[in-house]
């Protein structure tokens, strides 16, 4: 099941996402948590701490800037841009950080 968590910046999306992911994992579900925010902070709400959260963002930035090879498939991305959070949640940073969407949609 795919769950998308939406809202205005600062509304508490990340707290909701992190807590739901951990709860579902505790209940025995296999959980993949995707951080699609341009300023990814989900790791902190999942309990991996600010430093590991920033390490993932830095890996992501390095990939986007071409310093590291691009992951070709989703599975490679889960492997390369991911980390294990408590209760068996797998966290992956999927947002591009360096590049802005065009100013006009």
């Amino acid at each position: 099941m795919k769950i998308a968590v939406a809202g205005k910046g600062g509304a508490g999306k990340t707290t909701v996402s992190g807590t739901l992911a951990r709860s579902l994992a505790r209940a025995g579900h296999d959980v993949l948590a995707l951080d699609a925010d341009a300023n990814p902070m989900l790791g902190v709400s999942l309990g991996v701490g600010p430093e590991e959260t920033d390490r993932l963002a830095a890996v992501r930035q390095a990939i986007d800037e071409g310093e590291m090879e691009h992951q070709r498939s989703v599975d490679e991305l889960i492997e390369g841009c991911g980390t294990n959070a408590p209760d068996g949640v797998r966290l992956v940073v999927v947002s591009r950080i360096d590049r802005a969407d065009p100013p006009c949609p």
Partner: peptide, 10 residues
Amino acid sequence: PAGPRQAAFD
């Protein structure tokens, strides 16, 4: 505007 992406454009 706030956020790291903005540092790349604008």
